[in-house]
Computed example of a mutant assay.
Amino acid sequence: MTHAALPMVVPDPALPSRVRIHEVGPRDGLQNEKAVVPTEVKAEFIHRLADAGLTTVEATSFVRPEWVPQLADAEQLMPQLADLKEGGVRLPVLVPNRRGLDRALALGAREIAVFGSATESFAKANLNRTVDESLAMFEPVVASAREAGLAVRGYLSMCFGDPWEGAVPVGQVVRVCRSLLEMGCDELSLGDTIGVATPGHVAALLTALNEAGVPTGRLAVHFHDTYGQALANTLAALRHGVTTVDASAGGLGGCPYAKSATGNLATEDLVWMLHGLGISTGVDLGRLTATSVWMAGRLGRPSPSRTVRALSHQEP
């Protein structure tokens, strides 16, 4: 692979000067692989991502092994990341319930995330509960995590569309967001789980959240690229002041409970756009691209990221 090309920088004063990328590839990406990636490969993947300048890397999930066998090695993985934690890299982990929180605490986790739904159909498919029942399940988990001094992120899936219910009313999303904040979540990640959002829809939801008293500074966005809208939607969110964006190295990931969901926004594609806009990320695009090429080799297929392909001359 040649040295990474760089985009021409043309800043936009209406946009944030810096964006924090919340890297989800090791968790959200690898949980959707059919094959189980060896623990040592996961640990090297996360170390490579941190070496590329990513300061927040979602490491794994403490769910029951039979639910997500690809992440059943959380207890083996986390000790291999101790040096990163000591070096200041944020390593949040997903926990579904109190048992998951206890496992995470036992391994010294400092940040957790809970995963909720804005729609009843997806809450039933993913959590086997109604939306309100899932919120009730999260409440003691979030409270205990906060008592233990942990930061808590709330993921909210199906914020823009649901494969069973269609378009999701903005007010419905706002209600669940407010509930997650009120129970103690520090940050909310708004998920376009099946990738149907468009920039106008993104702007409408962010405006409604602001009007409902939800601070933009506590919001992140998580877009899937099913219809090629992830970067456009991200730009719309940036124009509304959002400064935290979820992305997955090499475009890994989807959603095992929503068959129409394709890959996450590729971190390299996001970094190319942000750097072209003069927005600082702290990420070295060349190292990041090399990491995704390396992981693609371990997975036995090329990366779906357009930027990775362009910079590495990788065939689709």
Score class of each variant (00 low, 15 high):
D12M: 01
D12C: 00
A14N: 08
L15G: 00
L15I: 03
L15P: 00
S17L: 08
R18W: 08
R20Q: 14
R20E: 15
I21V: 14
I21P: 02
H22V: 15
E23F: 06
V24Y: 09
G25F: 05
G25K: 00
R27K: 11
D28R: 06
L30A: 03
K34I: 13
K34S: 14
V36F: 03
V37F: 03
T39H: 03
T39I: 05
T39L: 03
T39C: 08
T39Y: 04
T39R: 01
E40F: 06
E40V: 12
V41C: 05
K42P: 09
A43R: 03
A43C: 09
E44A: 07
R48F: 10
R48G: 10
A50P: 10
L54D: 05
T56C: 14
T56P: 08
V57Y: 10
V57S: 09
E58R: 06
E58N: 11
E58A: 08
A59V: 10
A59R: 04
F62S: 01
F62A: 01
V63H: 06
E66H: 15
V68S: 03
V68Q: 05
P69L: 07
Q70I: 07
Q70V: 09
Q70N: 07
L71V: 08
L71N: 05
L71A: 06
A72S: 12
A72E: 02
A72I: 04
D73Y: 01
D73L: 04
A74F: 14
M78C: 10
M78W: 11
M78F: 14
M78G: 06
P79S: 11
Q80G: 07
Q80V: 11
A82H: 14
D83T: 14
L84H: 13
L84I: 13
L84W: 12
K85G: 15
E86A: 15
V89G: 05
R90M: 09
R90Y: 03
P92F: 13
P92L: 13
P92T: 14
P92K: 11
L94E: 02
L94Y: 05
V95N: 01
P96L: 01
P96A: 05
N97K: 01
R99A: 14
L101G: 00
D102Q: 15
D102S: 13
R103K: 14
L105Y: 03
L105R: 09
A106K: 12
A106L: 08
L107M: 15
G108V: 04
I112R: 04
A113H: 04
G116F: 02
S117M: 04
E120C: 09
S121T: 11
F122I: 01
A125D: 08
A125Y: 00
N126D: 12
N128Q: 08
N128L: 07
R129M: 08
V131N: 00
V131T: 00
E133W: 09
S134Y: 05
S134N: 11
A136G: 12
M137L: 15
M137E: 15
M137I: 13
A143G: 14
R146A: 13
R146Y: 14
